[in-house]
């Protein structure tokens, strides 16, 4: 675990979901749901590389880690303990108060994700410095890509009030909650803070399924891919990416093939990371002597170069376009367990 970073003005905010994004959680069946609820902190497993990535993102000391999870508030202690065990220090940990929803008879709110996460994100944004950049992490199990994109476009005022209204209605959000979201939104100063939205492909959803969200949303198969993109975006340095890579190799069986294939997958999807290979070479050969740490895989750079050469010409980056939320309303609707299993 890195030493506590010095407290600097907040320049960056990293927002994370927990289940299936940070934690390897199975709750597609009732039995899995019960087992998850009774797991102790040390029994919970993080997605490989997630803890290392967060630690490196936080290392500069100028960022904030905000976690919004659909897990019930009763799990706060065990989740906080798990994060502590992994060396992850957070600034916000918001969990879902489903007991309150139950008592109030708000059954739709118990299932819904949009009506829960969107207000939490907006509320947190209201407290953030206007010029703070954001990078968001979610997964393909629920509606994270939709919610995060809508949040980004609402803060940037790229989406109109009637559209937000229609989306929230489609997502079965109660009308008084809709009014509250709209009011909250209007109080937030306009900015365009969201740089990337990473979607961990827990269900291996084909990446093309997220194409309509534009290049801001990056589906990933592992956190090495996120680290590479964040190196390209200058949120991480090459030695930091290597640290994430080392954790994946040492703890989760990643190897030369899986890492170079992950790298090539991003290139094929048009992500601008061709230059990051050079940065990694420099880090390996530089004074930090990272080469010593990746001694099991001295051929990593050669493998990456080979994967680049195998592709021929680099495709153009995906086109930035406006998201037509009304055409993808289905993505916002709460999914039942049955639907989840089907996908």
């Amino acid at each position: 675990m890195s030493a506590s970073p010095p407290k600097l003005p907040v320049k960056r905010i990293y927002r994370w979901d927990l289940d299936k994004t940070y934690l390897q959680t199975d709750f597609d069946t009732f039995r899995q749901l019960v087992r998850t609820a009774f797991q102790k902190a040390h029994e919970k497993k993080a997605v490989p590389g997630a803890a290392a990535l967060i630690r490196e993102l936080r290392a500069q000391g100028d960022s904030r880690l905000c976690i919004v999870s659909g897990s019930p508030t009763q799990m706060r202690t065990v989740l906080a303990e798990k994060l502590k065990l992994d060396g992850v220090e957070f600034d916000e940990l918001v969990l879902k108060d489903n007991l309150r929803n139950l008592v109030r008879g708000r059954f739709k709110a118990m299932r819904g994700q949009v009506g829960y996460k969107l207000p939490v994100l907006l509320e947190s944004r209201a407290r953030a410095p206007v010029d703070a950049e954001e990078v968001l992490f979610g997964d393909d199990a629920e509606a994270d890509a939709f919610i995060y994109s809508l949040y980004a476009d609402m803060v940037a005022h790229r989406v109109s009030e009637p559209v937000v209204h229609r989306v929230l209605e489609a997502a079965e959000v109660y009308s008084d909650d809709i009014d509250r979201v709209i009011k909250q939104w209007k109080e937030i100063p306009q900015a365009d803070p969201v740089r990337r939205i990473f979607i961990m492909l827990d269900r291996l959803t084909p990446p093309a399924a997220f194409a309509h969200y534009g290049p801001r949303v990056v589906p990933i198969f592992n956190y090495f891919q996120a680290a590479l993109v964040l190196l390209g975006d200058k949120h991480l340095t090459a030695p930091q990416v290597l640290k994430v890579m080392i954790e994946l190799v040492q703890t989760s069986g990643y190897n030369l093939l899986t890492l170079s294939n992950s790298f090539q997958d991003l290139l094929r999807r048009g992500l601008p990371i061709a230059g990051v290979a050079e940065a990694l070479v420099e880090a390996l050969q530089g004074p930090a002597a990272m080469f010593q740490m990746v001694r099991p895989m001295p051929d990593i750079i050669a493998a990456f170069s080979k994967r680049v050469a195998a592709l021929g010409l680099q495709p153009p980056p995906p086109r930035v376009r406006e998201i037509d939320y009304l055409s993808i309303l289905d993505d916002a609707r709460p999914r039942t367990h049955k639907q989840r299993r089907k996908t």
Partner: peptide, 21 residues
């Protein structure tokens, strides 16, 4: 490569275990 990428983007797969030449 273009045809492979197009096909691959539409199907469930494990990108860690796929390379294209």
């Amino acid at each position: 490569r273009a045809q492979i990428d197009q096909a691959l983007a539409q199907v469930r797969h494990h990108a860690e275990r796929v390379a294209v030449h």
